[in-house]
Design a protein around this nucleic acid. Structure first.
Length: 153
DNA sequence: GCCAACGTTGGC
DNA sequence: GCCAACGTTGGC
């Protein structure tokens, strides 16, 4: 299967690229949106590449890359009573929410701010730049991914 | 802190 | 199945 490309959003106060660099690897828990869930469960596979994006940050920016190291599997936080992401409707034999594992790849020397990305004509169709785009997990084309890497260097 | 854009929930 | 109310996201 061909390598695919994605963008994952995280608020740096919750989990930043520095946290990922320190941990080396993490599970991407807490996604509670069905569209994103479907991608995590069905489409995002080991070996795929991920742009790491800081949302609600100053400035909001793509800050590095990661690589997927485990295919989708049930997000355990949905079953943990008291956990902020606990979902009473989720059952162990019928999980609603999924996650993948990712590993740190690189942190950009300079973050690529949302503002700077908007000036790139090659990125005009990028999901991230669409008005009202809120998906915390979203597909990125190979061309868009490569454009971002060029901008980072 | 504001608020536009979305997604979800639940009454009917 | 409609849609109003509510909750969340996330840029600004």
């Amino acid at each position: 299967m061909a390598t695919k490309y994605w963008l994952f959003k995280s608020e740096p106060g919750a989990y930043s690229i520095d946290d990922l660099e320190r941990d080396g690897r993490t599970f991407w828990d807490g996604v509670r949106n069905y569209q994103a869930r479907n991608m995590l469960r069905d489409d995002i596979k080991t070996g795929d590449h991920v742009l790491f994006y800081h949302s609600n940050a100053d400035p909001p920016a793509v800050v590095g890359t990661a690589v997927v190291v485990a295919d989708g599997y049930p997000d355990h936080t949905q079953f943990e009573q008291g956990h902020p992401k606990f979902d009473p409707k989720a059952k162990e034999d019928a999980p609603r929410w999924f996650m993948v594992d990712i590993a740190f790849e690189r942190k950009f020397a300079t973050p690529l701010s949302l503002e700077s990305l908007r000036t790139q004509s090659k990125l005009a169709d990028m999901e991230l730049l669409r008005k009202g785009s809120r998906l915390s997990v979203q597909p990125v084309s190979r061309q868009e991914f490569n454009t971002i890497l060029k901008l980072a260097d």
